[in-house]
Computed example of a mutant assay.
Amino acid sequence: MTAIQAGLTVLTVLVVPYIVQAIKTKAMGGNTARWLAIAVSALCGALTAMAGGIPTDASAWVTSIFACVGGVQVAYASFKSVGVTDKWLDALLALGDVKKEG
C-alpha cells in the first residue's frame, strides 16, 4: 500500500460514517445504513486500490477493500459510542435550517 493509498483509506474511514449517518437520519433504518456503509466502503477501497494504477495482484485489491470496510466499521462504532456522529451531524444538518420567527 502506497502513501497515497493509505491517505485515501484514512480519509474514507473518517468521511463515510458521516455520509451514511446523514443519509440514515433522513431516509433509512440502521440495518440498511450498515449495508450501505459496507457497500460504499468497498467501492472506496476498490478506488483506493486503483490510486497507484490498476493492481495486478489480487492481494492488493483485498487489502485495500478490507482496510476501508473494516476501518469504516470501527470508526462508525467508535464515533457512535461517544456520540460524535449524532452531535456533529445534528449541528451540520441544522446549518441549512433557517428558523422563522412567528
Rank of each mutant, 00 (worst) to 15 (best):
M1Q: 01
M1Y: 09
I4P: 00
G7Q: 04
T9Q: 09
T9D: 06
L11S: 12
T12N: 05
V13G: 02
V13K: 03
L14I: 04
L14F: 03
V15S: 11
V16M: 04
V16P: 00
V16R: 01
P17V: 09
Y18L: 09
Q21T: 00
I23E: 07
K24P: 00
K24H: 14
K26C: 06
K26A: 13
K26G: 08
M28N: 00
M28C: 10
M28L: 12
G30W: 07
G30D: 07
G30H: 05
G30A: 12
N31V: 02
N31T: 02
T32V: 15
T32C: 10
A33Y: 06
A33W: 10
R34P: 00
R34D: 03
R34I: 02
R34F: 15
A37F: 01
A37C: 03
A37T: 00
A37Q: 10
I38P: 00
A39V: 10
A39G: 14
A39S: 14
V40S: 10
V40Q: 08
V40K: 06
S41H: 01
A42G: 05
A42M: 11
A42C: 05
L43V: 12
C44A: 13
C44E: 04
C44Q: 03
C44M: 12
C44W: 04
G45F: 05
A46G: 15
A46L: 13
A46T: 12
L47C: 09
L47T: 01
L47V: 09
L47F: 08
L47I: 10
A49L: 09
A49D: 10
A49F: 02
M50V: 07
A51T: 02
G53E: 08
I54H: 12
P55E: 03
T56F: 06
T56Q: 11
T56V: 12
D57M: 06
D57T: 00
S59Q: 12
S59G: 08
A60K: 05
A60D: 12
W61Q: 04
V62C: 07
V62S: 11
T63S: 13
T63F: 14
S64T: 05
S64F: 08
I65Y: 07
F66D: 00
A67Y: 15
C68L: 10
C68W: 07
C68V: 06
C68S: 15
V69R: 06
V69F: 08
V69T: 04
V69Q: 05
G71R: 05
V72W: 14
Q73C: 08
V74G: 03
V74P: 08
Y76Q: 09
A77P: 13
A77W: 15
A77T: 13
V82Q: 04
V82L: 09
G83W: 15
G83K: 09
V84P: 04
V84E: 13
T85K: 05
T85I: 11
T85A: 09
D86M: 07
D86T: 09
K87Y: 14
K87H: 15
L89P: 00
L89S: 07
A91R: 11
L92R: 00
A94W: 05
A94I: 02
L95I: 08
L95T: 10
L95G: 02
L95H: 06
G96V: 03
G96C: 02
G96D: 06
V98L: 13
K99L: 07
K100I: 14
K100M: 15
K100A: 15
E101N: 01
G102Y: 13
G102V: 05
G102I: 03
